[in-house]
Each structure stands twice: as structure tokens, then as C-alpha cells.
């Protein structure tokens, strides 16, 4: 009986250790790979992508997000805080990766708000009030509420947008191709979850605030 336990433990240990080493190696190799981000017209950054922060900032943070994603919502204040903390050294570029039922509509509304110069205000209110309109994982779907479009109109009015114009822009469906393109770009880069971050073209592989900050700091040091 002892012999069997020894053999299984030995094989198990070898497999587990090899996997841990392999995982660490895999993450490092992906994270060290730098995809072109400077040209402003590649799969990471497109000329019409919403951008916050100075264009010549030494670090470009590309975020593939979904307006309906709960983690993106939780992460958003942290990203905005980082933009303040890094004061001019960080540029945020937003790309869409719609993975939920209302994501595309929410993205279109945000883009339409951008036409009136209030992209970031709309993004903020969408995230803040996401529990009212978004899919909530791990919870039974709540009592039927108002359709998302009605809620979005209300948010828009609250932040002082011209709702009529906004509704027209969304109705014309002019942002669909942009959202589609973002999604295709994301897929070509291997983005399967939201949020996915690229720091100067390097994909963040271990998702956490600390690791994101560490990667940004590393890029600033190398700069």
C-alpha cells in the first residue's frame, strides 16, 4: 500500500509542479510580448477610440471593457483614480468587448453621448447605475424593470444631454460597425474576458489592481 501512495504522490507532485512552472512561464511570455500600440491605427488603438489623458503620455493603457460587465464597473473608479495619480503619465484608451445582452446598446449610448462631448460622464453614470439595467451574475433576475433604453434616456437627461439628439444617433445605428470592429480587434488579440488590459501593448496576465499598477510602473521605469 505504501508503494502505491509513493508512486502517486511522486507523479502528482511532478505534474502539479510542472503545471505551476508552465503557468508562470506562459504568463510571463505573453506579458512580455509587446503588441504595436503607438501607431494609433492597429488592433490595439484605433483613431476613433475614446481616449482620456495626454496623447504623448509615456504609458498607454488600453482597456477592453463591456459596459454591462460588473468587474469593469468595480474597476472603473480605480482606473480613473490612477489617471489622476499618474498625473499626465497615463493615457487611457477604451475598446469595446460586448459580452452581455445590453452591452451593445449601452456602448452605443455612451458613444452617442460622446458626440455631445459627454462620453466620460455617460460612461460613469452607466457604470454607477449598472445594477438597474445590467445582468447580475449569481442572482435571480429581478422583477421586470423598465427597458434599458428608457433608463439610458433618463441618465442622459440627468447629466444634461440633448436626449432627442442622442436617441436619433442611437436609432441610426451608426456605432454598430465601430463596436463590431472593436470586438473583432479584441478577438484577434486573444481578448476573451472583460476587462482586459494592455499596458504599452503588453497584456496584463494576472488580473488584479496591484499587478496592473506594477506593470504600469515597470513601463514608466523602462521609459
Amino acid at each position: 500500500m505504501k508503494k502505491q501512495i509513493k508512486i502517486l504522490t511522486l507523479i502528482g507532485a511532478v505534474v502539479v509542479i510542472a503545471t505551476i512552472i508552465g503557468a508562470s512561464y506562459y504568463r510571463k511570455s505573453i506579458q512580455s510580448e509587446r503588441r504595436p500600440f503607438a501607431s494609433n491605427d492597429g488592433p490595439l488603438v484605433r483613431p476613433d477610440s475614446p481616449t482620456l489623458g495626454p496623447a504623448n503620455a509615456p504609458v498607454t493603457l488600453v482597456e477592453f471593457l463591456d459596459p454591462e460587465c460588473e468587474t469593469c464597473r468595480t474597476f472603473n473608479p480605480f482606473i480613473k483614480q490612477m489617471l489622476k495619480d499618474y498625473d499626465g503619465k497615463l493615457r487611457l484608451v477604451v475598446r469595446y468587448m460586448p459580452l452581455h445582452p445590453n452591452s451593445r446598446l449601452a456602448a452605443a449610448y455612451t458613444e452617442a453621448a460622446g458626440e455631445q462631448g459627454k462620453y466620460w460622464e455617460m460612461q460613469e453614470v452607466m457604470f454607477r447605475r449598472q445594477p438597474e439595467w445590467g445582468e447580475r451574475h449569481g442572482q435571480p433576475s429581478s422583477t421586470p424593470q423598465e427597458p434599458p433604453a428608457v433608463l439610458f434616456d433618463r441618465y442622459a437627461a440627468e447629466i444634461g444631454l440633448d436626449v432627442e439628439q442622442l436617441r436619433n444617433s442611437v436609432a441610426q445605428n451608426k456605432f454598430a460597425s465601430k463596436i463590431d470592429r472593436d470586438q473583432k480587434d479584441g478577438q484577434s488579440l486573444g481578448v476573451a474576458r472583460t476587462p482586459t488590459f494592455f499596458v504599452n501593448g503588453r497584456q496584463l496576465m494576472r488580473f488584479s489592481k496591484e499587478n496592473l499598477k506594477a506593470l504600469i510602473d515597470e513601463e514608466l521605469k523602462n521609459e
Binding site: 505534474v15 508552465g22 506562459y26 476573451a192 474576458r193
Partner: peptide
């Protein structure tokens, strides 16, 4: 064991 560890590698490490 390899199938278990491998499938977890695909989903948890490679993010598929």
C-alpha cells in the same frame, strides 16, 4: 490527472 490539470490550464491560465 493530465486531463484535469490541462483543462484547468486552458481555462484558468490561458483564459479560454
Amino acid at each position: 490527472l493530465l486531463a484535469t490539470v490541462g483543462s484547468l490550464f486552458f481555462s484558468e491560465v490561458m483564459g479560454l
